[in-house]
Every structure is written in C-alpha cells, then in structure tokens.
Design a protein around this nucleic acid. Structure first.
Length: 491
RNA sequence: GGCGGCGUAGCCAAGUGGCUAAGGCAGAGGUCUGCAAAACCUUCAUUCAGCGGUUCAAAUCCGCUCGCCGCCUCCA
C-alpha cells in the first residue's frame, strides 16, 4: 500500500487510483526560455523515481510532463536573441532533454507542448465563459474567482487574506483583483492564435488544464510540481478545471521542496542558481542524482560542494562493494543446491535479509517515497556484504556464490528503481571519477608506473616502490595492492 | 500583515506516541598490509532549538519563546 502526502489535505493518504491498477500522473515541466537549473533537476528526478516506483509496484503508468513554450519570458528572449519564440523554445527543449538524459531521468509517456493544445485551451475557456466562470475583457478573458467558492482550498488561504497581502498593482479593469488571465490579447509582433475573443495567446495556467484533460482525463490521480507552484499556478488550475468539468480534477497533489544555496531558495530572480549543465561539467550526473535522492523530496536540500562530495564518497563505497562481489562471482557457476543445505546457520539471517531486501525497500518507498530511508537501508546492506566478503575465505564456496548472487540481484533490483548504482565499477572509477578528477597522467603512463613499481616490489626494493607510489599520489592516482594485482583509482 | 514549513551528533540525513534515536561523511583506537588504501571491528546524540503542558509513556501531540526559510509577483 503506497501512502503519499497530499498537499490538498495536508496529510499522508493511502493511494487509491481512479482506475484500479492504473496511475495517471501529470508533472508541470519547465518554461523553455533558458537552460534549466538544479532546482528543475530536483523535481524531475523526484517524479522520475516516483513514476518508476509505481511501475515497479505493478501499476500501468501514464506519465505526462509538459513544456511551456509560449510565455512572456520566451518572447523577451526571442527579441534578445533575434530569433523566433518557437526557435527559443526548441533550443531549450533540446537542452532540457539532453540534461535529463544525463541525469538518468526517463522520458515521460507524453511530453506535450502548450502550443499544440491551443484548440483545447480555447474549448475550456469557452466552457468557463458559458458557465459564468469567466468573462472577456477587451480581447482578454479572465477567470471569475468569486464564482468559484472553493478558490484557495489547495494553498489554504481565503480571498480576504490574499487581498490583504497583495503586493502587485491590480488591473483596475478586472471585476475583482484576484481574477486571473485565461487568455491574453496579443500585442503586435507577438505569437497569436485566433480565438472567439480575437487574436491572442493563452494564460499560463490554462495549458495544464487542457493538456491534463486531453491526455489523462478530467479526473486523474497525481499532479506534481515544485512547492512554489501551489499558488497561484495549481490553485488556478483547480479553479479552471473543476469549474469547467464540474468534477474533481486531481486526487493527490505532490510538491517537491526547493534546492537551496546557503539556506536560500535557488532561483533565477535571486541569481543564486547553477544550471544543470554547469554542475554536470563538475560532478558526474550520478553524484547529482544520488545527492538529490538522499533527502526526502518534500524537504529543502542544500546544494553545496560538501554535500556533493558526500554523495561521491557514497558512490565510491557502493561501487567498491559491487566490485568485490563481481570479482568473487567471476567465472563461478551458481550451484544446483538448496541455500539451506550450504549456508551456515550464522549467515542465514543475512541471507534472509537479502531475500527480503526488495520488500524492505518497498516499505521505505511506500511511505511517501522515502528515498533517503531507502538509501540508508541500502548502505546498511552494503556493510553486511562487505563484512561477508572480508570473511569469504572461511565460507563454503557454494554458500558464498548463492548468497552473493542473491545480494547482487537485490542491489540491481532496487538500483533500477532509483536509477543509481547501475554502472560497472570500472565505469565509475576509471570513467566517471577519472573524468572529474585532477589526474595529470595518461592511463598508459599510470600503467607503466604500476608495472615498474611491481618489479621493484618483486625484488623487495621498498624505497623505489614507495617512491613510485608517491609520484602517482601527487598526480592524483591512488594505488591499491590487491590479491589479484595492483589496481588504481583517481583520488 | 496573511498563510505554510523547518530547527535531530562536527557535517549530511531518516525517524512524527512505546524495543538500544537508521544510514552516510568526518574524527579516535584497533585488525589486515613490506608501506598504504579499501574493507572490517570498537568508539562517536542519556538525547532530538528552549521553556511549559497532555500522557503510564513524546524527538514525535498541545501552548509559548527564540532562530531560519518559503508562498502571497515570474518561479521546480
């Protein structure tokens, strides 16, 4: 049973799908006028794991994540760059897809563009006008907030509170200050579509209503986005959607916490942001992904060098274990014996723990997708496996093969759901880690040094062996003398 | 001003009524190693911002105080 925190009710609730066995989810994507920053990455990664998790739990998932490709900021950017708004959108959609691919975020099942749904938006607006929930005004159309009594139910504020706190000058033409635009008359030179109210373009909120309706239906299970979208975006979506359909729009609202820099929200307006690509030039994508998943998705997460380095150390630890298991199992066949016949009593609890690991993982994830807890129990098992490996010489070989094969499979299984720990150890140490390290020698040079050092070691010339170790150390290379030979890793 | 959230060890971070407060990083000691690293073992919060209250029982519920943050304007 999956329990999830619903912003609408302020509580964790049991997930009950609209259609048994099916999960329909809509996540607000990005407005494509610039490169995406790490804050965008957080939501994308969090909801990626959530949709993966529903699939793991057997749901037939339809996941929709849109692109907002018509907007003031896009128009401004187009003017700045001297290209069309459509070209701006295309450029940053491509960039976004590239960033997401690097972060291991799956493509959504549907990735709709606002501009492909103008017809549907106009239909919704027409319905709202017919029902008295919207009114045209000089080519614009506004939502009539006062006629939607439940306005404020998501963000938990009432109209008076909002009026009192209004920080923006209101357009005096509007019937009521909180009425918001569904449709905007276009100015000359701006993108425009024909409508019953004259040429114009959609307001921001209406696209999600139209695309949600079209791809997921008038009532669907989950709508997700960043906490900053609760008001006004999602509040307005509810008003438009429920106002026009007369039905409950969304059953569960999920909102991710912010990425902070020094306790402050990362945002464009504060200027304290890093683009995803900037960060991926400095840190391997898997580090960033693990970092983001190490904190519960609703909590704020502080983006800092120290925290990313923690994540890197965690990956080192995991891949070291994976390497140990893989090396032991290499070339060994799984024996056709029953585990209970060969695994000694002292190791039975560990074997059971491994067997139940998928279930333990699901208990963590069932509780509002607690990836932080899930990663915690995963490290717990890493230690157990390392301990077993340290004592492997005293183990029955058949027992060891069975137990470590089970461990490997258990890790692979949860890794696929989290989208981390999926590489081979070499890819991590000699690929990703080398790529971001400051190693100043070529692989060939390193290997030549190792060869020389091993010759020195063979003749017990420890001084020379240590000298070479030091040379490599200064070049950013760490050496490890293992039973099977010397291996190296970037420091 | 309105509304909402947060404050757990040196750092990161789970835990929201009841077994010894997960896990990681860093630190200390040890095993192993020619040296080293990794790994393993031991150690590392009688205590959960502070003060009161409810309860047989609270980090977990309630109240107040302090500190921090977010939304109310585009924002993931």
């Amino acid at each position: 049973m999956i329990r999830l925190y619903n912003t609408l009710t302020g509580k964790k609730e049991e997930f009950v799908p609209v259609t048994p066995g099916v999960m329909h989810m809509y996540a607000c994507g990005v407005t494509v006028y610039d490169y995406s920053h790490v804050g965008h990455a957080r939501g994308a990664v969090a909801f990626d794991v959530i949709q993966r998790y529903f699939r793991r739990r057997g749901y037939q998932v339809k996941y929709v994540r849109n692109f907002t490709d018509v907007d003031d900021k896009i128009i401004n950017r187009a003017k700045e760059e001297g290209i069309s708004p459509a070209a701006v959108a295309k450029k940053y959609i491509d960039a976004y897809q590239e960033d997401m691919k690097r972060l291991g975020v799956d493509r959504a099942d549907v990735e709709p563009l606002a501009t492909d749904h103008i017809r549907e938006m106009i239909d919704v607006i027409k319905r709202l006008v017919e029902k008295g929930l919207a009114y045209p005004l000089n080519g614009d159309v506004y939502f009539r907030v006062k006629n939607f009594p439940e306005y404020g139910k998501l963000s938990k504020r009432n109209l008076d509170d909002m009026m009192a706190g209004a920080r923006v000058e209101v357009d005096a033409r509007k019937e009521y200050p909180l009425d918001f635009a569904l449709w905007k008359a276009s100015k000359p030179g701006e993108p425009a579509w024909d409508s019953p109210w004259g040429p114009g373009r959609p307001g921001w909120h209406i696209e999600c209503t139209a695309m949600g309706f079209k791809h997921l239906g008038e009532t669907f299970d989950i709508h997700a986005g960043g906490k900053d979208l609760i008001f006004p975006h999602h509040e307005n979506e509810i008003a438009q959607s429920e106002g026009s359909s007369g039905k409950r729009f969304v059953n569960y609202w999920l909102h991710n916490g912010f990425v902070n820099i020094n306790q402050e929200k990362m945002s464009k307006s504060l200027g304290n942001f890093f683009t995803i690509r900037d960060i991926l030039d400095k840190y391997d994508a898997e580090i960033v992904r693990l970092f983001l998943l190490s904190t519960h998705y609703r909590s704020p997460i502080d983006f800092s060098d120290a925290n990313l380095k923690d994540a890197r150390a965690g990956l080192d630890r995991f891949y070291t274990m994976k390497e140990g298991v893989r090396n032991f199992l290499a070339g060994k066949k799984v024996p056709a014996v029953k585990p209970e016949e060969v695994i000694e009593a002292a190791d039975r609890p560990l074997y059971e723990k491994i067997q139940n690991f998928g279930q333990t993982f699901e208990e963590a994830m069932d509780d509002d997708f607690n990836t932080a807890l899930a990663i915690g129990i995963l490290y717990d098992l890493v230690r157990d496996v390392n301990k077993y490996l340290a004592e492997i010489d005293q183990k029955n070989v058949q027992a060891a093969i069975l137990l470590l094969t089970a461990a490997r499979d258990a890790f692979d299984d949860v890794s696929r759901t989290l989208g981390i720990f999926l590489r081979e150890p070499e890819e991590w140490f000699q690929g990703a880690r080398l790529g971001e390290s400051k190693v100043t020698l070529s692989v060939e040079q390193i290997e030549r040094y190792i060869h020389e050092r091993n010759e020195a070691r063979a003749r017990k010339d420890w001084a020379e062996a240590d000298r070479i170790r030091k040379v490599l150390d200064e070049a950013g290379v760490a050496l490890f003398d293992r039973a099977g030979g010397t291996v190296w890793k970037p420091k």
